[in-house]
Amino acid sequence: MVNVQLLTQAVGELDEDRVMALLTEFVAAMPTAEEALSALNACQQGMNAVGELYETGEYFVGDLIFAGELLTKAVDLIKPVLRGEGAATIGKIVLGTVRGDIHDIGKNIFKSLVESAGFEVYDLGVDTSPEAFVAKAREVGADVVGMSGVLNLATAAMKNTVDALKAAGLRNGVKVLIGGNPVNSEVCRNVGADAFTTNAAQGVKICQGWVK
């Protein structure tokens, strides 16, 4: 198993060589999907550190973009482990950044991970209207509707979307997962979602639990 502290530290320091070395070694040791998720979790903890260092003026915009690239590379390395042997689709997820918000880094990471875990993902992109979520969920028979957002106003759009799912008579047939900066248990309740997360790897676990 990879040393999660070292991995978190290497991601936080944007030490690309070290991150890649740790993960290459990790993947070569044939880890389980569970271990892969904790490695991803460690990477994400490192990203949190990057975010904090950006806030304090230690990192700059270029470093932030680089961090995004580094995480994408890390995810690409870990992805094959997540999928394991069976390649069958285990569920369908309709995913999007909600109306009024265009942040998609977190959404894209989550998308990449759940796809690797065996979900079929219908990605509606950014600034997605409630109607678009409803239409796609109905069309494909979604198991999960995943909504992402970074701005505070995203929570209102999430609630509007859940309301639209209810109005369309779809709410009881799907699980709703919300993710991103502004979500917490209180927001989750107000929005009427089934679960929330600020961590892509944890989001994958939640979805896996729902389709078991």
């Binding site: 230690e58 990192y59 700059f60 270029g62 470093d63 973009i65 680089f66």
Partner: peptide, 12 residues
């Protein structure tokens, strides 16, 4: 200097 990282690293 892609993403200005050499500059930022020198500053840091």
């Amino acid at each position: 200097d892609r993403l200005c990282r050499k500059f930022a690293n020198a500053y840091r």
